[in-house]
Structure formats: structure tokens, C-alpha cells
């Protein structure tokens, strides 16, 4: 093997194990630091899981968005069928159900038992009703409004009702929650950076003598900074592991009660955990923060130590 690559690999392996050794040398401090990092990472990860579950639940509701169009009572069934055909061509409408006035009447009679009252007059008081499902998946207020306005402007239409308001509110609340979670997660990520940065800073200053001597015997900056960067890596890996354990245990504890609740609502909803991809993301993010924190500390403090 090329001597240069061999040296490079050897030095990385040395720094890798040396930094692990340093970690084990000061277990109490390092474990406490790692737990703090783990908890700080567990919150964003937990929020994320919470959000994706909330989205699964609410997307079930989103699909229930339905617009009821009550046609003028003067419109007969043939005209209603034509109207339904006409609007079904719109590309923002996915599905249409026409409830003809006779059927509405029959259903009403069956349900209410008021057969006699209504048969006094021959006239059917029910309008033809068209139920419309929009094409877009999630409730979108502006799109729905535009659709409703355009439908209302048609001569056949008497009145329109839709039940989107509370779903809209929920979507807005979820947006706010998302923003709050994003801000909190950013703050916690910054906290992790600061914790790692400060820990590495302290270890740089406690290795002052060693750094000076290494510089005097020709240690390059990359040689000197390597063990510190690897320490950052270890904080990331161990902190990420703790965060993963915290989230997984919490999910385990919550899954029973949530299942019971969803059975009460006749839903087959089940809590979704971190999964493989998100676990990888969690570790990737943790390692990134660990490396970044140590890199910042190294860049800021290593050059201030010169032999004298």
C-alpha cells in the first residue's frame, strides 16, 4: 500500500481510539454531557414523530372534505344530471354524487316517518343535491373558496355548504405547532452545538501542554485537531443513541394507551415510531452537530495555543 495512505489511515485510527480512550478516562463528566446532548436531541426527534402521527390522523380527516351543492328547486332531475356532468369536467373536482330530489324525499320519509305530512302536497320540497369531493388532498382554504365561489355563480345553484372550517382551523393549528416545534428544535440544536463546543473547548485547554509539545515536535494542525474532532463524533454517536432510546421507550409506553383510544374511535390508527430512515436521520444529525460543535471549538481555540 502507498506509504502516504498507510500513514493517513494509521493516524486516523490512532485518533479514533485515542478519543474513545479519552472519553472512557473521564466517564462521569462525559456520560453526563452525553445525557444532556441525548435529551436535547430527543425533544426534536420526539416532536417530529408526534407531528408525523398528527399528520397521519388529520390526513384521514382531510379526505372527508365535502361540498354540498343545493340546486334550485326549479331544477328538474334531467337538468340536475346535466349540471353534475358539466361540473365533473372541472379538474379541481375529483368525485361527484348526485342525490336526486325523489330519492331525498324517499329517504326522508323512511327516516322520519312523516309520510302523511308530506303527502298532503304533491310538491317535493327537497332540492337536487350534488356532493362534490375536491381533487386536492389536503384542505386548502383558498382553493376551496374559489371553487365554491365559481359554483355559487352558476344559475342552477341555490346554496352551498361545506364542512371545511374546522379542518381548516386544525390545519392552521398544526402549522403553528410546526413552527413552534421548528423554533424549539433549532434552539435545542444550537444548545447541542454549544454543549459540544464548550466541552471540546475545555478539553483543548486541559490538553494545553500536550498541544504545545506536539506543535514543537512538528505536529500539524490537522494532526492536533483530529482527536478533538473524533471526540465530537463520539458525542454525536452516543448522544444520538440516548435520544433514540428515549424516543423509542416513550413510543413503547404511549402505544398501548393510543391504541385503546383509537379503538374507541373505531379507527385502526397506530402510533408510528422513528423507523429506519428517521433513525438514520437522527444519527446523521447528531453526528453532524457533534462534528460541527467540535470543529468550531477547534478552529476558535486551537490556534490560540502556541508554544512559548
Amino acid at each position: 500500500m502507498n506509504q502516504f495512505i498507510k500513514t493517513w489511515l494509521t493516524q486516523h485510527a490512532q485518533a479514533f481510539f485515542f478519543s474513545l480512550g479519552q472519553y472512557a478516562k473521564n466517564p462521569v463528566n462525559n456520560i453526563l454531557t452525553t445525557i444532556v446532548i441525548g435529551i436535547s436531541l430527543a425533544f426534536p426527534a420526539g416532536f417530529y414523530v408526534f407531528l408525523s402521527n398528527a399528520q397521519i390522523v388529520s390526513s384521514g380527516w382531510d379526505n372527508a372534505v365535502e361540498i354540498n351543492i343545493f340546486l334550485e328547486t326549479t331544477i328538474d332531475e334531467q337538468q340536475a344530471t346535466d349540471f353534475a356532468k358539466q361540473i365533473s369536467k372541472r379538474n379541481d373536482i375529483a368525485d361527484i354524487i348526485l342525490i336526486k330530489k325523489d330519492k331525498a324525499l324517499a329517504e326522508y320519509k323512511k327516516l322520519s316517518g312523516f309520510t302523511d305530512v308530506l303527502s298532503v302536497t304533491d310538491e317535493n320540497p327537497f332540492p337536487n343535491v350534488v356532493l362534490v369531493k375536491p381533487t386536492y388532498k389536503y384542505f386548502d382554504e383558498s382553493k376551496t373558496k374559489r371553487l365554491v365561489e365559481e359554483l355559487r355563480a352558476m344559475p342552477e345553484v341555490d346554496n352551498i355548504q361545506y364542512d371545511g372550517k374546522w379542518i381548516n382551523r386544525l390545519a392552521k393549528i398544526i402549522d403553528i405547532v410546526k413552527l413552534v416545534i421548528f423554533i424549539l428544535s433549532t434552539l435545542l440544536a444550537v444548545a447541542v452545538l454549544l454543549i459540544v463546543g464548550n466541552t471540546i473547548r475545555l478539553s483543548i485547554y486541559s490538553s494545553r501542554n500536550e498541544i504545545e509539545i506536539t506543535k514543537l515536535f512538528g505536529g500539524t494542525d490537522s494532526f492536533i485537531q483530529r482527536p478533538f474532532l473524533y471526540s465530537g463524533l463520539w458525542y454525536g454517536i452516543f448522544g444520538g443513541s440516548i435520544a433514540w432510546i428515549l424516543v423509542s421507550v416513550s413510543m413503547q409506553m404511549l402505544s398501548g394507551p393510543v391504541n385503546n383510544l383509537s379503538i374507541l374511535y373505531a379507527s385502526n390508527f397506530q402510533l408510528t415510531g422513528l423507523g429506519l430512515i428517521n433513525t438514520l436521520c437522527l444519527f446523521g444529525f447528531a453526528i453532524l452537530l457533534g462534528l460541527l460543535g467540535s470543529w468550531i471549538a477547534v478552529k476558535r481555540h486551537l490556534c490560540s495555543i502556541e508554544p512559548n
Binding site: 509539545i213 514543537l216 515536535f217 512538528g218
Partner: peptide, 16 residues
Amino acid sequence: IPIFRRNIGFIFQNHR
């Protein structure tokens, strides 16, 4: 500088 210093051995008063 690091590469240059590899030509030199240094001894301190307090050994360090």
C-alpha cells in the same frame, strides 16, 4: 512550520 520543526529536537528546562 510543522514540517520544518521535524528537523529539530528541543529540550526544555522543566522537561515538559
